[in-house]
């Protein structure tokens, strides 16, 4: 298939860039002993309560504390995402299904391993912990090999693109501590290669599934990814982060903000780019997303 050949070309180019720009992750950042407690650590516009009555009710110190706890939550989400992603890619390296991609997978795993390290270092140094994941791992449903991989790599692409929207917006936000800006900037820059690869892979898998799998399986995969989008968006609303920000009634806060229409509009805006891509390759399921 043409899209598979193109995928190997793209992977080769991205590997070459990754190797030519290599710098040890341990030299990329300067880690201050502590971060100022009186400034935002995450852009307030990206916090889960923004543009709702909850946000308006918070005092300025509470708003600042919320950005701090949610920056640790956001980076914790990245840690868990990357752990799962490395597992999936490791399962496929040197397999007969992806023979031309093993070299790229090495670079991919190395970069993702570095990303996980800097995200976790931030969380542990300034938040005292990595927030635990609010679910548990599960295999993609049984289906034709191409459809199953479409669900696995679709999940990865959704989470990567969603986090990248946040990274891109915070990379140059001068209200944040330098180390937070830099983490967002480095991740945005390196993740753009992974997203480029992920889109090529999704295109190839979708072409393969259309040729070889039952159409009903492809439709089910679209609905599965739509449900995953809903879950991903809700992972930003962590009651434990509200507790750490010393906000009262954390569960009520989550319920109130999730019900507010401005949040659904925000969710649609941050997923727009990914959904346009899914539309372009013809992946169904958009109508199943619970915004």
């Amino acid at each position: 298939m043409k899209s598979w050949g193109h995928l190997e070309e793209v992977a080769g180019r991205l590997s070459a860039i990754s190797r030519s720009q290599f710098q040890s992750v341990f030299e990329k950042f300067e880690w201050p002993e502590s971060l100022p407690s009186d400034c935002y650590w995450m852009s307030p516009e990206l916090t889960s309560c923004y543009d709702t009555p909850v946000w308006d009710r918070l005092s300025e110190p509470e708003q600042i504390r919320l950005t701090q706890a949610e920056s640790v939550n956001f980076f914790s989400l990245n840690v868990h995402l990357i752990r799962g992603l490395i597992g999936e890619v490791s399962d496929r390296i040197y397999t007969t299904r992806y023979p031309g991609l093993s070299d790229f997978f090495h670079d991919f795993i190395r970069e993702e391993n570095e990303h996980m390290w800097f995200f976790a270092t931030f969380c542990q140094s300034y938040g005292g912990k990595v927030y635990p994941t609010r679910g548990f791992d599960g295999a993609a449903p049984a289906a034709h090999e191409s459809v199953r991989d479409l669900m696995v790599f679709g999940r990865i692409l959704i989470a990567e693109e969603l986090c990248d929207v946040y990274n891109a917006r915070m990379a140059n936000d001068e209200r944040l501590p330098l180390v937070a800006q830099r983490i967002n900037a480095v991740h945005h820059e390196e993740e753009s290669r992974h997203i480029a690869f992920g889109r090529q892979l999704m295109t190839a898998l979708h072409d393969e599934a259309r040729e070889q799998a039952d159409p009903s399986e492809l439709e089910a995969a679209g609905r599965y990814l739509a449900r995953y989008i809903s879950v991903c968006l809700r992972s930003f609303y962590n009651p434990s982060a509200y507790v750490d920000a010393a906000l009262p009634e954390p569960l009520s806060i989550r319920g109130e903000v999730l019900r507010h229409p401005s949040r659904a509009a925000f969710h649609q805006s941050v997923m727009e780019r990914t959904l346009k891509f899914f539309d372009r390759i013809g992946l169904p399921g958009r109508e199943s997303i619970a915004w």
């Binding site: 609010r134 679910g135 548990f136 599960g138 295999a139 449903p141 449900r227 995953y228 992972s235």
Partner: peptide, 9 residues
């Protein structure tokens, strides 16, 4: 499944 359980939680 593992996705639905997050919504259930």
């Amino acid at each position: 499944d593992s996705i639905e359980v997050v919504q259930l939680i």
